[in-house]
Nucleic acid binder design. Sequence first.
DNA 1: TCGCCACTTGCAAACGTATTGCATGTGCAG
DNA 2: CTGCACATGCAATACGTTTGCAAGTGGCGA
Lengths: 144, 144
Amino acid sequence: MTDNDESLELVKHAIREVGLRATPARIAILQMLLNSNSPQPHSVVAERLAPLGVDSATVFRNLNSMTQVGLLRRAELGDHVWRFEVVRDRHTGHDSAHPHFLCVDCGEVTCLDDVQLTASSQRVTERVGEVTEILVRGHCNQCR
Amino acid sequence: MTDNDESLELVKHAIREVGLRATPARIAILQMLLNSNSPQPHSVVAERLAPLGVDSATVFRNLNSMTQVGLLRRAELGDHVWRFEVVRDRHTGHDSAHPHFLCVDCGEVTCLDDVQLTASSQRVTERVGEVTEILVRGHCNQCR
DNA sequence: TCGCCACTTGCAAACGTATTGCATGTGCAG
DNA sequence: CTGCACATGCAATACGTTTGCAAGTGGCGA
């Protein structure tokens, strides 16, 4: 069994695990995003998969469905284009309202789970409701 | 001179100060946003000004141009809708990029300008880079 | 105060991204 | 192996945003 076979099985398993069918389109999308080190816009994913005969609408639907089940993360860098990246730490447990830092230049998302926002978060919670997500945008140290 | 006259003159002055003409459309947009306590999407601004005979494209152009010159701030809260708010402290120097709370159910936006995120923000800044925007999402008290 | 001219506007058309309907195809549980 | 709910391809559509162009006007200078 080669590395490719192995990763193929892993990808298939990850897709089935969340209750979706491991179709060629989904496998290709996930593999492509796994090989990217930054979130990719739909257009890029669709372009790359077009030669494989995958329709643009299918890419959209799959990116959205895989995002809904937590396989992917959808990021908006400020240019009104959704970018998608693989959620690599689905099993680590800290899926509560931990802050994410999003670099609007390179699109990289950093988990700030050790950053203490609790005090203010609690105050915010009381004031406005139930907080489910905290997103911090800016320019990361590499892009400044 | 009434309060309205006074604020009208202030608004006109603010517009001219940045090198733009004080046209009825710009005055109306600025006044409307000054009376809002949260960022408003273009659609809402356009709807509100439509009865005055202001075109939607004009609203777009003005929101963008006034943003370019620093009169307004454009915020993207993660739902692919630009929202505009008046920059109220252009002259005071201290950065006014305050956190926003977005209710994912009803879409209402609350400005959290009095919430203290400074300590953690500074820590975040050191770790990842320069923070330009803080977004808190969740369910507001009305929607829970 | 008046007239000029660059800046603005209204209207409509163009654009790019995202979504949807429907008939066909297919992954996979039983 | 087989059936059926889920997924896909294709095309049409919805939507938010931008742009071209001719007409209009704010505000400066005379």
